Amino acid sequence: MYFLAPETELISGGSDKQLILWECNGTGAWTSQAVKSIPLKGHTEAVCAVDAVYQSDEPGLNLLIASAASDSTVRVWSRCGPEAKCIEILQFGNGFVMDVCLSFLPGSNVPVLGGDDCKISLFIQQNDQFQKALILSGHEDWIRGVEWAVCGEDLFLASCAQDCLIRIWKVCTKSKQLPETEDNSLRLKENIFTVKDTDTSYAVTLESVLAGHENWVYAVHWQPSISKDGSMQQPMRILSASMDKTMIIWEPDKESGVWLEQVRVGEVGGNTLGFFDGQFSPDGSMIVAHAFHGALHLWKQATVNKKEWTPEVVISGHFNSVEDVKWDPEGEFIISVGSDQTTRLFAPWKRKEATE
């Protein structure tokens, strides 16, 4: 499931082998009378991951969608106007893609697709086709999640895997790299590819490896961009969810730049099986997570001591495992989907003040 900003469109995929593009009428009222649905059919097995980006400044005109399914394919869809169609099928043979993420190369409008089948595969759209540009190796077990983030003029990719590690990769134009010197002992290995359409070379380097979880890491997410000084800025902050029953917030140290664990929250004891996924609130002051048994968990950052996070009363309602959860871009409500075949929309309960 993937929310698009502004919150008038929603992409969902499920075990019925199809995706659905939901379009609200723009009033913000997600009701059956106000929502139009467009089914996207083509996968032959259950859809397990979906992502989307707008290819134009005005939402609703041109939408690029990527979906991964257990049929070992990734399908790329394009929505122009009222219609959506599959424009490409990427075959992964015996591989199984567990997550996909779309973005644009730094300083360009060239889409880049990140997916995984034990290794991270980067696909670049050239001549209206997605071509494999690089394979990023390093993880030693199945990769469970990937997510892009644009920070300034650079593009960052976070990945997590069953090897209990998180890796952060940096993509930037080759011209921005430091000039070669005779002493290359301390230089990071660069993976270089060239986009023929623009004749621009890009370098991919491993920014950091984060070790702190003691079991499989199932999800990794960047904090959403925030508005600051009249522009949208990407906080260098990552949230990870693991089977070790903990959620960790990672940030680079202000002096050394080394990524460190800043906050760890979670559950102790009980019959929980760890966390399957989690998300920041839009301003990064809250964390919502869901466990394998379907329970939702919520933590809130203290107002005075920013490193103190306390558990909060959490919404509930699903009677089976929760499969996905997402904040809306404005932080006004949360939408969740579960294997109980229901989608639930949660919003604040605004009560009138008691009168004397």
Rank of each mutant, 00 (worst) to 15 (best):
residue 4 L to G: 05
residue 7 E to D: 13
residue 10 L to S: 08
residue 13 G to R: 06
residue 15 S to Y: 13
residue 16 D to L: 10
residue 16 D to Y: 12
residue 20 I to A: 05
residue 21 L to H: 07
residue 27 T to Q: 15
residue 29 A to P: 05
residue 31 T to R: 04
residue 32 S to L: 11
residue 34 A to P: 06
residue 46 A to T: 13
residue 48 C to E: 03
residue 48 C to L: 12
residue 48 C to F: 06
residue 50 V to E: 05
residue 51 D to H: 15
residue 56 S to P: 05
residue 60 G to L: 04
residue 65 I to R: 06
residue 69 A to F: 07
residue 72 S to H: 14
residue 76 V to D: 01
residue 83 E to G: 04
residue 86 C to I: 02
residue 87 I to R: 15
residue 92 F to N: 08
residue 92 F to S: 10
residue 93 G to C: 10
residue 94 N to W: 08
residue 94 N to V: 06
residue 96 F to P: 05
residue 100 V to H: 12
residue 105 L to F: 07
residue 106 P to H: 03
residue 114 G to S: 14
residue 116 D to R: 03
residue 117 D to F: 10
residue 120 I to C: 07
residue 140 E to Q: 15
residue 145 G to M: 10
residue 145 G to H: 13
residue 147 E to W: 06
residue 153 E to A: 11
residue 155 L to G: 00
residue 156 F to D: 04
residue 164 C to I: 05
residue 168 I to R: 03
residue 169 W to V: 12
residue 171 V to A: 05
residue 174 K to Y: 14
residue 189 K to P: 03
residue 193 F to K: 05
residue 195 V to D: 11
residue 198 T to E: 09
residue 206 L to D: 02
residue 206 L to I: 00
residue 207 E to P: 09
residue 212 G to H: 08
residue 213 H to E: 00
residue 217 V to G: 00
residue 218 Y to P: 02
residue 220 V to E: 07
residue 222 W to K: 08
residue 223 Q to G: 01
residue 223 Q to N: 02
residue 224 P to D: 05
residue 225 S to I: 02
residue 226 I to C: 03
residue 228 K to I: 10
residue 230 G to H: 12
residue 231 S to N: 13
residue 232 M to T: 07
residue 234 Q to L: 01
residue 236 M to F: 09
residue 241 A to L: 00
residue 246 T to H: 07
residue 247 M to R: 04
residue 250 W to A: 04
residue 252 P to Q: 01
residue 252 P to S: 04
residue 254 K to H: 06
residue 258 V to W: 08
residue 259 W to Y: 01
residue 261 E to R: 00
residue 263 V to L: 07
residue 264 R to A: 11
residue 269 G to V: 13
residue 271 N to A: 13
residue 273 L to G: 15
residue 277 D to A: 13
residue 277 D to L: 09
residue 283 D to E: 09
residue 283 D to W: 04
residue 284 G to M: 00
residue 287 I to S: 02
residue 288 V to T: 08
residue 288 V to D: 02
residue 289 A to D: 10
residue 294 G to C: 00
residue 296 L to I: 15
residue 300 K to M: 11
residue 302 A to D: 15
residue 303 T to H: 13
residue 304 V to A: 15
residue 312 E to A: 08
residue 313 V to H: 11
residue 314 V to I: 11
residue 316 S to V: 08
residue 319 F to Q: 14
residue 319 F to R: 14
residue 322 V to N: 02
residue 322 V to F: 02
residue 323 E to F: 07
residue 325 V to T: 14
residue 325 V to R: 03
residue 327 W to T: 04
residue 330 E to L: 09
residue 333 F to G: 02
residue 334 I to R: 03
residue 335 I to L: 15
residue 335 I to R: 11
residue 335 I to D: 10
residue 337 V to G: 13
residue 343 T to E: 09
residue 344 R to T: 07
residue 344 R to A: 03
residue 348 P to Y: 01
residue 348 P to F: 04
residue 349 W to C: 13
residue 352 K to F: 10
residue 353 E to K: 04
residue 355 T to Y: 01
residue 356 E to K: 14
